[in-house]
């Protein structure tokens, strides 16, 4: 798989990241090398192999739907970069 700057820019946008030209070139080269390395998995015959998401034999884990105390709201807002009267503040999203 060829990794070029255009692909990394596309991935950066999906990841909500930005790179300057120097970093973009650097990460493109590194990504290409890493992807070339991980492609060694292609040698493996995995036709009839089931994928493993995690190792526990878990299905759904349920609990009783009971109300219990949760973390104090003011405590949560203490770490917020911008809040107002119980709301997280962000720049305007809907255009006028």
């Amino acid at each position: 798989m060829k990794v070029d700057k255009k692909l990394v820019e596309y991935l950066a946008n999906l990841s909500r990241l930005e790179f300057d030209d120097t970093k973009l070139a650097e990460i493109t080269g590194q990504l290409e090398e890493i992807i070339k390395y991980v492609e060694k998995l292609n040698i493996l015959d995995t036709k009839d192999i089931e994928p493993t998401a995690h190792i526990l034999p878990l299905k759904n884990v349920f609990r009783e739907d009971k109300i219990s105390p949760s973390i104090d709201r003011n405590k949560i807002f203490k770490s917020s970069p911008d809040s107002d009267n119980g709301y997280f503040m962000v720049p305007r999203i809907i255009e006028e």
Binding site: V38, T46, E50, P51, T52, I55
Partner: peptide
């Protein structure tokens, strides 16, 4: 090609 393949390789390693 990558993620699912790796999950299958994980099965083989396990």
């Amino acid at each position: 090609a990558y993620y699912l393949k790796a999950q299958k390789a994980r099965t083989l390693i396990k």
